[in-house]
């Protein structure tokens, strides 16, 4: 009764080079992949972003999306206004420019 999956999408996806996009933030430029949401990648780049729940319901990590494309693998519970994104769950899909709130 062991399912014979493998070989299909997951392993193929792994072989492909992860796509890299540029994130512009003021004068900074950060390279990110589509492998994980924006928040941990910004944190590793030393950008302090507000956060709380890290799972899309508290809105604390909301920032401005000036241009470019992001997507949400799971629709977040928080209300996302147009022109904004939730860093904790948004996957960057193109080069983008962002601005922190404040």
């Amino acid at each position: 009764m062991v399912p014979t999956l493998t070989t299909s999408t997951s392993s193929q996806g792994h072989k492909e080079e992860a796509e890299v996009h540029r994130v512009l933030l003021g004068k900074k430029q950060i390279l990110v992949t589509e492998d994980e949401p924006l928040l941990p990648q910004l944190e590793r780049a030393g950008v302090l972003v507000e956060y709380q729940c890290r799972e899309g319901y508290c809105s604390s990590c909301m920032i401005k999306l000036l241009w470019g494309k992001v997507s949400y693998p799971v629709e977040p519970l928080a209300w996302v206004h147009s022109g904004y994104l939730l860093t904790c769950c948004a996957i960057v899909k193109s080069d983008i420019e962002i601005a922190l709130l404040g």
Binding site: L48, E50, Y51, Q52, C53, R54, E55, S60, L101, G102
Partner: peptide, 20 residues
């Protein structure tokens, strides 16, 4: 935003507020 403050003066609080 109403106030001129731009940064969180106690960023360590987020590590306590995080629910995961």
């Amino acid at each position: 935003p109403y106030f001129s403050t731009k940064n969180n003066p106690i960023p360590w609080i987020n590590a306590w507020l995080v629910s995961d």
